[in-house]
């Protein structure tokens, strides 16, 4: 069995790969944490507008330390800056943008994605204080909901599964998954492999995937630049 830790892409590389598919002019919500990295890899010549649930369209990078304005934060409560053309709005408008289908893309992290597009990314099901935030709204709202994730959990358990075992965030909502090993689409037949890193064989990839991995046409090579 291949040691996937030795060949897998870094989080930055997964984020880079996801960023390459965002079209010019897109309105995008990047989930808290790892998905936020996607903003760093916006391809040259394309302009994307980032939405944050707490009421900003068109925010930019983090300010320099010491320059934070704590009234200007993203959904992860991190300080951000504004780009020219930014807008503020209240929460009902913000979620009208989400639920109303006005966002082009939501890019989210996850614990599990099922072959029918179900996603579980809000609760590990363990004891603790339950907290959902905007996750359940986001998975249903955008025109496309894609996931960026390690291919397997820290325990080694597959994150791409037949059915989610963790509490669901939403049903049948994920359309594409970018993992540390491959890119898959969620189609009517289940996960369809679109790209994989050259260092892993199809057999080994299937060995670390918890659901059937369909091949339908060419499988591209998932090649990302070296990034920190």
């Amino acid at each position: 069995m291949i040691d996937i830790a030795a060949v897998r892409l870094s989080s930055a590389q997964i984020a880079w790969r996801a960023a390459q598919d965002i079209p010019d002019g897109a309105y995008v919500n990047l989930g808290i944490g790892f998905p936020e990295m996607v903003a760093r890899f916006q391809p040259e010549g394309r302009h994307i507008t980032c939405h944050t649930e707490n009421g900003i369209l068109g925010f930019g990078e983090a300010p320099s330390p010491g320059d934070e304005d704590w009234d200007l934060i993203n959904a992860g409560k991190k300080a951000v800056t504004l780009r020219p053309g930014a807008a503020f709005f209240h929460h009902a408008d913000s979620f009208a943008m989400i639920r109303g289908g006005h966002l082009d893309l939501a890019i989210l992290g996850t614990y599990q994605v099922a072959e029918n597009g179900d996603i579980a990314n809000w609760s590990t099901g363990k004891d603790g204080v339950p907290a959902v935030g905007g996750a359940m709204d986001l998975v249903h709202g955008a025109k496309a909901t894609v996931v960026v994730t390690d291919h397997v959990a820290r325990s080694g358990a597959p994150k791409l599964v037949r059915r989610c075992s963790l509490p669901l965030t939403g049903l049948a909502c994920v359309t594409r998954v970018y993992t540390s090993l491959c890119v898959v689409d969620v189609a009517s037949e289940g996960f369809v492999l679109r790209e994989k890193i050259p260092a892993i064989s199809l057999a080994d990839l299937r060995g670390v995937t918890g659901a059937e991995l369909h091949v339908d046409g060419d499988v591209g090579e998932m090649i990302c630049p070296e990034l920190e």
Partner: peptide, 13 residues
């Protein structure tokens, strides 16, 4: 505790 999805909380208000 009553946990409500954020957009649902906004819309309920």
């Amino acid at each position: 505790l009553e946990v409500v999805p954020q957009g649902t909380l906004a819309e309920r208000i």
